[in-house]
Design a protein around this nucleic acid. Sequence first.
DNA 1: CTGAAAGCGCTTACAG
DNA 2: CTGAAAGCGCTTACAG
Lengths: 350, 350
Amino acid sequence: MVHTRNPRLKDVAQEAGISIATASRAMSGSPGVSAQLAQRVRQIAADLGYVANVHARSLAGSPSSVVGLVVHEIGDPYFSEIASGVLSVASTRGLTVQICHSGRDPEAELAQVRTLIANQVGAIIVAGSGFVDPAKEAGVVQSLKRYQEGGGRVAVIGRHSLRADTVQPDNREGGTTIAEHLLGLGHRRIGVVSGSRQLTTVADRLVGIDGALATAGLSLDATPLVEAPFTREGGKQAITELLTVAPDVTAVIGMNDDMAIGVLSVLRSRGVMVPEQISVTGFDDVAVAGDLAPGLTTIRLPMSEMGRQALKLALAPPATRRRSRRAAHELVVRGSTAPPRADSVLRPPA
Amino acid sequence: MVHTRNPRLKDVAQEAGISIATASRAMSGSPGVSAQLAQRVRQIAADLGYVANVHARSLAGSPSSVVGLVVHEIGDPYFSEIASGVLSVASTRGLTVQICHSGRDPEAELAQVRTLIANQVGAIIVAGSGFVDPAKEAGVVQSLKRYQEGGGRVAVIGRHSLRADTVQPDNREGGTTIAEHLLGLGHRRIGVVSGSRQLTTVADRLVGIDGALATAGLSLDATPLVEAPFTREGGKQAITELLTVAPDVTAVIGMNDDMAIGVLSVLRSRGVMVPEQISVTGFDDVAVAGDLAPGLTTIRLPMSEMGRQALKLALAPPATRRRSRRAAHELVVRGSTAPPRADSVLRPPA
DNA sequence: CTGAAAGCGCTTACAG
DNA sequence: CTGAAAGCGCTTACAG
């Protein structure tokens, strides 16, 4: 069998009758090579199908062309949309993306970040909620700090305690908006189907909700809230429990669309009419939210754009101070919310 | 600022009072080092936070620890679920995954595969439909062939013309099953909302549908079919056109869930009752299919498992002949299908 | 069982 | 503008 090895820089140089040093400069566009020669070398390389070995390259000190992306779970639409944004700008810049799962587990997250660093990626993007308890993030904070001191670039999406350029989704403001929407509709007895309050995303959204509630003379403390995994399945569990604990709610806030979809599913199977008997809201506006029946009223976050922004920040020359891009939210009203029924409103709490 | 460089193998060796050759052997578990020494060296490495530089490693000839995954679009649930499966087995094996988009474009796909090869990944997984026209795949076929001759491992999901280990979803059989389901319900006037027939996935599913139709004395040729992009948006376009062309259909087969979701969305906004007036089916069973209202009757394909299988094939020692794993389908009946209304059945074709 | 040395394929001061 | 040479951090025959 003819073994066709990939061509090396040496082959290109030989073909062009020059040294590999010159060939290298010609390929990378470094100064010190006549434009004409450079052009000819590139042509030869192309003809030979030459592609530089990234490992040799980065060993020799070239900036890495791969960026690492840490997500909780790529199967979750929130993250796959972020990933899609990251991939799209990566490909326009000739970059390659390494994706890994943290599974919302601080230890796993740390392990993944370390692997990325060991792989000498040029930039790291960490997406997804952080943890309220700073101790859980100490490891990553530390690793990322070292990495940055060594010239690595970092951008995070929706994290507070990681010192890096940040894309900050409007979690708090969105929480306020969604609660105000329900309050404006006349709801007073609102239930919350929540992910773990240990997650900063959840905590932030709750703060926003609390603010709106307070303005209306209510409070989050007095609001029935059930915690469960921050997933569709968690939404099902939580609503099931909420219905027992607080059967009189006229509206349910899901802390993300996934949970809200779980809520809708349980409500439907129990024959509870949405929004006639209970209004339901989500958060994120994943692609499918508008195609549910009823459509899900939710807070839109520009996930794909957030991914794009994050990579752009990571790729921009490092600034002396941390940059922050706010990802604005938008209330999307669909069929899942309506004013409470008159009898609901008047019915005294159980 | 104290510059804390990552430790090198040299540092570990020094700390242990041995040569780097021995340290290297100890770390990799190569024979020729006493178990005791190896143990001690690993401990020291761990204490120092040493992680081998993958670039140096692979330059020196070590097998690569990164695998490349090519998908059409990571934001599409079909692919994000496959990716999730790939990532999960990768992480248990200490592997890292590079994901890239082909965008259902042969040229882009080729460029991505080339980049992966240039990055010296140890294995490449290509997911997503191929093209009926072999000319469009010639480039990838060629690149992958060379790559494999050089020791690279390849596994594909749902591709025919790529010579490699394959995970083959039941596209044809699933097509037959879904058509039989509708036929069994009594439907005779069935419409198809289809992605491009240039895509092998679409072509395969249609062959299966055709078979079932033929058995029932019908034929695909006589069946109203509209082609559009293989996406939710495409589904909306196609059903809109289908309704004009063939307003008398009692059932619509969406060639994947995404298209079917688009179909349901348009039907709902037009006030067409599903399944009372028109039954609708999908294909894939993405996570959300069960949570729609009505739930989508569809063919379940084990996407995440397919991703897992593909990576396992790629990681297994190469066989002399291509291996193939069939990914079995399963009919999932939900609320979106029902027998046609009596008047529909009796109504003569327009 | 262990070490000295070559080599993987690049890039980049350092000299012309 | 161009080349010879060192060096990036490993692994692996090759000798002990």
